[in-house]
Structures are given as structure tokens and as C-alpha cells.
């Protein structure tokens, strides 16, 4: 069959709502797009551990410390679910890491911002995980089976991440004036980068149209961003925090909040590697990889020796 006919049959399957599994025929571009998107998602989980790991030893109470540890451990797990899903498309784990370490693969730009105070742990859980959940709930219905299944597991676990973040914010907002200011300061710094997490505006998003057709994405960047604004503005009211956007206004006609212009120049600067922490994050990942090399090698040698000893004992 010609490629063009195969493509059409594939599109028909997607349109019927069928789920695509690893060994099914798929257009090369579908495979590549998924490898790019799933691995980018996996890298985000792994790099996302760094800004929060920074605060584990300085958590203010044991309760906060166990929660943050559990959250960061979940992120490692989520990264692993996603790497496994990407590998079903025929790329190796080593190659995926190589792409991250050399800067060939991207991860969510939000993790290139620094975590300056304890309130940032609250803001990240509430806003960054909040934005991630909006995106991930959509992805539980994506057309590629292993990705969708990983998303279901991740969504089940992620809700606690957001709630522990909101709780941190709530305690600070009900605390002293200084604590409240700390929460407001974190909110000011994380609000706009959180909105950028949904990616460039629809008009400039190069992948959106094809991704929607293949049901890799079910909502556009701007639709998801609007959802985030509408939900979060109401939550900020409960906290008594001010959204750092003078143009924010309820639009009765649309039934949504109108919000100010996003600084897309800043977004592209950070994507291109010039954010405050890009170098630090990549260096940390490379360091972990390089310093773990002897462990990876020793484990293989040990397993081979054990297997050889077992073979020998069977032979005798």
C-alpha cells in the first residue's frame, strides 16, 4: 500500500477514537512527534526535581519535609513512567538522556527559574503543578496508549502535589505580615511563567494543528491557558493574594477572565537557554549522569558475574 493510503487509514483509526499501541503501524512523523513530546515531558519531571530538591533540607517542619520528599520522589517516578512510554516508540533510554544532557531535547522552561524562598515551594505546587495537571488531564485521552496510561497514573498521584503547595501558601497567607509578603512575592514571580507553560499562542504554535488532528493534543495552548487563569484567579482570592496583572478583568460576555499580555520575548529567551538557571540545571543533570557511570557499569558486571556463577553451579 502507498504511504498516502496508509496515512489515511491511520487517520481513520484516530478519528474513530481508536488507541494506537506500540506495535501498530504509524506514520514516521507521528512516532517522532510522540518521542519529542513524551521525552520532553519526562525530562521536565526529572529536571523539575532540582528546584524543589533545593529546599528539602530546609523545610520548616517535618510534615513539610516528608511531603516535599514524597513529591520529589513522585516526580522521579513520573519521569520513569514517561521514559518507558517513549522507549516503546523505539528510542533507547541512553539516547533520551543523551538528548537531554547535550541540550538537544527541551524540558519545561519553568524549571529554569530559581527557587528563592520557602514560599516558592508553595507557589510551585499550587501554580506549576496546577498548570501541569490541566495539561495532563487532557493527555489521559491522548491517542497513543502507553502515553495515555502513564498520564492516568501521573494524574492520580499529582493532585496531592498541588494541594500541598496550596496549603503552604494558605499557611503563609494566614501568618505574619512578612510571611504574607513572602507568599505574594513568590506568586508575583511564578504567575507569568506558569501561564507560559502552556506554550506559545495558538497563532504561533507550529505543532498545534497536526497534534490536534492526531489527538496528541485535545485542546489548544490558549484554551488551556484560559482554563488555568479562570481557575487560579478564584483560588488567589481565597488566599487574599493579588494577581500581578493590572489588566486582569472578568469578561461577562465571554464568561472568562481577560488577562494582560504575556512577555513572549522572555519565554523564547528562556527556551533558547538564556533563563536564570538553564546552565545550572543541565550541569546538575550531567554531573549526576557522569558521577553515576561507575555504578551503572559495576551493576552490569556484578549481574554478569552472578549469572555466570549460576550457570557454573548448574553445569557442575
Amino acid at each position: 500500500m502507498k504511504d498516502i493510503e496508509m496515512d489515511q487509514l491511520f487517520q481513520d483509526r484516530i478519528d474513530r477514537g481508536e488507541v494506537i499501541e506500540p506495535r501498530d503501524w504509524m506514520p514516521e512523523k507521528y512516532r517522532k512527534t510522540h518521542i519529542r513530546q513524551i521525552s520532553q515531558h519526562a525530562h521536565s519531571e526529572i529536571v523539575g526535581m532540582l528546584p524543589e530538591g533545593n529546599w528539602i533540607t530546609r523545610a520548616p517542619t517535618l510534615r513539610r519535609k516528608v511531603a516535599l520528599l514524597a513529591k520529589v520522589q513522585d516526580e522521579a517516578g513520573h519521569g520513569l513512567y514517561l521514559y518507558s512510554a517513549a522507549e516503546t516508540l523505539g528510542i533507547s533510554r541512553d539516547e533520551l538522556f543523551h538528548q537531554l544532557h547535550t541540550g538537544k531535547a527541551k524540558y519545561s522552561s519553568i524549571f529554569n527559574y530559581p527557587t528563592l524562598s520557602w514560599a516558592d515551594m508553595g507557589a510551585i505546587g499550587w501554580l506549576v503543578d496546577g498548570a501541569a495537571i490541566i495539561n495532563q488531564v487532557m493527555l489521559t485521552r491522548t491517542s497513543y496508549g502507553p502515553y495515555a496510561r502513564a498520564m492516568v497514573k501521573i494524574c492520580k498521584e499529582e493532585s496531592f502535589h498541588q494541594r500541598q503547595g496550596f496549603e503552604i501558601m494558605m499557611i503563609l497567607c494566614n501568618g505574619t505580615e512578612v510571611q504574607k509578603q513572602m507568599a505574594q512575592d513568590a506568586f508575583n514571580r511564578w504567575w507569568w511563567p506558569s501561564l507560559m507553560m502552556f506554550g506559545p499562542p495558538d497563532a504561533e504554535s507550529t505543532h498545534t494543528e497536526q497534534s490536534m488532528k492526531w489527538k496528541i493534543k485535545l485542546k489548544t495552548n490558549d484554551e488551556l491557558r484560559q482554563q488555568m487563569v479562570d481557575i487560579t484567579v478564584e483560588q488567589a482570592k481565597v488566599l487574599g493574594l493579588t494577581v500581578p496583572d493590572p489588566d486582569l478583568k472578568w469578561n461577562e460576555e465571554r464568561g472568562h477572565y481577560d488577562f494582560g499580555k504575556i512577555d513572549w520575548d522572555e519565554f523564547w529567551q528562556v527556551v533558547k537557554g538564556y533563563g536564570p538557571c538553564n546552565k545550572e540545571r543541565i550541569n546538575a543533570r550531567n554531573k549526576a549522569w557522569d558521577e553515576g557511570a561507575w555504578v551503572r557499569e559495576a551493576a552490569i558486571v556484578y549481574a554478569d558475574k552472578q549469572a555466570a556463577a549460576k550457570d557454573l553451579s548448574i553445569a557442575v
Binding site: Y81, E87, R93, R149, A150, K153, A299, Y302, A303
Partner: peptide, 9 residues
Amino acid sequence: HVGSLHATD
């Protein structure tokens, strides 16, 4: 089946 992982043994 829940997923996969890497391990030496």
C-alpha cells in the same frame, strides 16, 4: 501489566 523499567537482574 503496569509498565516497564531498567535493571541489571
